[in-house]
Structures are given as C-alpha cells and as structure tokens.
C-alpha cells in the first residue's frame, strides 16, 4: 500500500517525520541484530528444536539471516530437509 502511494504521488508527498520513523525502524532491526549476535544463533536453535519433531534437517547446511532490502528487513532461512517423519 505504501509503495503504491509512493508510486502514485512520489516520495515528495511523504512527510519527513514518516521517512524518519521508517528509516529508524529499519536501522534498529539491524542495530539490534548486530549488537546481539547470539540472537540469531539462539533463534536458529529454537527453530531447529521445533523442526526436529517433524523432520530430519541437515543442520550443517541450515542458513538463517536477517536480510535487508531497500524498505524492509526479512528473516531468510534455507533449511535443507533430509527426510520427513512418518505419520505426523
């Protein structure tokens, strides 16, 4: 929705305080993640714990990171599955 508005009216239509808030929101996701490097490691372990109940994971090959695009931050995971458990 925001991007549609931006396309229609251009960035000039956006109030500078909204730009400030959005930039802060994004930079703080990164700041907090880099200040607490074990956050991603702990999260990875928690996710693994849940997944192990359902499937066998190639834990060495698992990747998890916060990835920043222009106007968003996403949690990107690549989790190779070895096999699913029966009858779940």
């Amino acid at each position: 929705m925001a991007t549609l508005m931006q396309r229609l009216f251009g960035d000039r239509g956006q109030r500078s305080k909204d730009v400030a808030k959005e930039r802060l929101r994004l930079v703080l996701v990164h700041d907090r993640a880099s200040v607490a490097p074990n956050l991603v490691a702990t999260l990875k372990e928690d996710i693994l714990q849940v997944l192990r109940r359902y499937m066998e994971i190639d834990e060495e090959g698992m990747e998890l990171e916060l990835s920043r695009q222009d106007d968003s931050v996403s949690l990107v995971a690549s989790i190779p599955v070895r096999r699913l458990k029966r009858g779940v």
Partner: peptide
C-alpha cells in the same frame, strides 16, 4: 514542526 509533519511526534518515538 510536529504539526507540519516535519518532526517525529511523541507516539512515533515511544513506538520505536
């Protein structure tokens, strides 16, 4: 400036 939308308002900062 807050009224003009050129300064973050209290709620914006508390939200962040």
């Amino acid at each position: 400036m807050v009224k003009r939308g050129d300064m973050m308002e209290i709620e914006d900062i508390l939200d962040i």
